[in-house]
């Protein structure tokens, strides 16, 4: 089963997604993997990662750092049944789009991310993908940021089509859409 969890900043989407992964792994001896995508480059980033680690601690996740080419995370997992939580699409998209000092075209980024997700979906028991609602602040950004927002919008639509269920988390409350 694949579930897409979407929400804004501070919406409680991570906490909800973790709870979901834990409950999906409860039936049987299923390994839980957390795919972390954030590239830490400053103190604020370290704090964010630390907060998320605390949130996850004691829940039995095995963390795999995979900031780009998300399908390579499969090589780092054991065989057998597994629940995978990928967090999050906005970081993954930024890493794929703005690496090595250049900006990759939107379509190429969308295809790369979706291909990776499709191969994960095929090879894991349950797959939870966390994505972000970055679309409603009413700000008109520069061309590059617009392209980034557009890429996430397209990826979200493709993920929703691939997923069995899409859940929007609003003030910590899951709303199935």
């Amino acid at each position: 089963m694949m579930i897409l969890v979407i929400g804004g900043s501070g919406s409680g989407k991570s906490s909800y997604a973790e709870g979901l992964a834990v409950s999906l792994a409860e039936s049987g001896n299923i390994k839980k993997y957390y795919l972390a995508t954030m590239q830490v480059c400053d103190a604020e980033g370290r704090q964010k990662v630390e907060r998320h680690r605390k949130l996850r601690s004691g829940k039995g996740f095995f963390t795999i750092e995979q900031p780009t080419e998300i399908h390579h995370s499969l090589e780092k997992m054991e065989q057998g049944e597994r629940v995978v939580l990928l967090e999050c699409i906005s970081n993954l998209t930024a890493n794929e789009m703005f690496s090595e000092g250049e900006t990759k075209p939107e379509m190429q980024v969308v295809e790369n991310v979706i291909r990776g997700i499709e191969s994960l979906k095929r090879q894991v028991t349950h797959f939870i993908v966390v994505s972000n609602n970055v679309f409603e602040d009413g700000v008109i950004y520069d061309a590059t940021t617009r392209e980034y927002i557009h890429a996430i919008g397209k990826i979200n639509q493709r993920l929703a089509a691939l997923a069995d269920q899409v859940v929007e988390v609003v003030v910590g409350i899951p709303v199935v859409i």
């Binding site: 970055v134 409603e136 602040d137």
Partner: peptide
């Protein structure tokens, strides 16, 4: 207001 549904702001 819900204010979290946007791009991460530049200002800390």
């Amino acid at each position: 207001d819900e204010i979290g549904n946007g791009i991460v702001p530049l200002e800390p």
